[in-house]
Amino acid sequence: MDRAKKLLIGKILLAILGGIAITLTIKYLPYILEITTSLDKFRDYIISTGRFGSFLFIFFQILQTVIAPIPGEVIQVAGGYIYGVPLGLIYTTLGLMIGGIIAFYFTRLIGASFIEKLIKKKKSNWLLDIMNSKKFTVILFVFFIIPGFPKDFLIYVAGLTPIKPLKFFGILLISRFPWLLASVGIGSNIHYGNYMSTIVISLIALIAFVLGIIYKDKLISKFSQGNQVNEQM
Rank of each mutant, 00 (worst) to 15 (best):
G95T: 06
L154H: 10
A182Q: 01
K5S: 08
L181S: 10
G185C: 05
I9P: 02
F209C: 07
Q61L: 12
Y215S: 06
E73H: 12
Y91F: 14
F169Q: 02
D44Y: 10
I101V: 15
I130H: 02
T49M: 14
M1P: 07
V74A: 09
S124P: 05
T36R: 11
R3N: 09
K41W: 12
E73D: 10
G10A: 04
I145K: 10
G10R: 08
I75N: 04
H191K: 13
L7Y: 12
N132F: 13
S183I: 01
A15S: 07
I58Q: 03
F149R: 00
L172M: 13
S183F: 06
I163K: 09
R176S: 01
K5N: 05
Y28G: 03
S38L: 10
A112G: 15
F114Y: 15
S133Q: 06
M233C: 11
A182F: 05
F59R: 10
A158C: 10
F209G: 03
L154T: 07
V157R: 04
S133F: 09
G80R: 02
T198G: 08
S113Q: 12
S183M: 07
S188M: 04
F136Y: 15
A15C: 04
G10T: 03
L140N: 03
T36F: 10
L109N: 06
G226H: 09
A158M: 09
Y156D: 02
L203T: 14
D40P: 12
V210I: 14
T65N: 10
I12M: 04
A208W: 00
L181M: 13
L29Q: 03
I146K: 03
F57I: 03
K41Y: 15
I163W: 08
I115W: 05
L166V: 13
Q61M: 12
N189K: 14
I139E: 00
I102C: 09
G79R: 01
F168Y: 11
M131P: 00
F153C: 07
E231L: 15
L14H: 03
F104S: 00
T92D: 06
D152S: 13
Y28I: 06
Y81W: 08
W126I: 01
I82S: 00
P147I: 00
I115S: 03
T49S: 14
S183L: 04
A112I: 06
W126C: 01
W126Y: 13
K41T: 13
L7Q: 13
P71R: 11
I201M: 08
I174T: 06
A103Y: 04
K121R: 14
V200C: 04
A4D: 11
S221E: 12
L166M: 12
P69S: 13
Y81V: 02
I171G: 01
F59Q: 08
I20P: 02
T137R: 11
L89K: 05
L13F: 11
G212L: 05
V66L: 12
N132C: 12
F177V: 00
M1F: 11
G212W: 05
Y91A: 05
I146T: 06
K151E: 00
H191E: 07
I163F: 09
R51S: 14
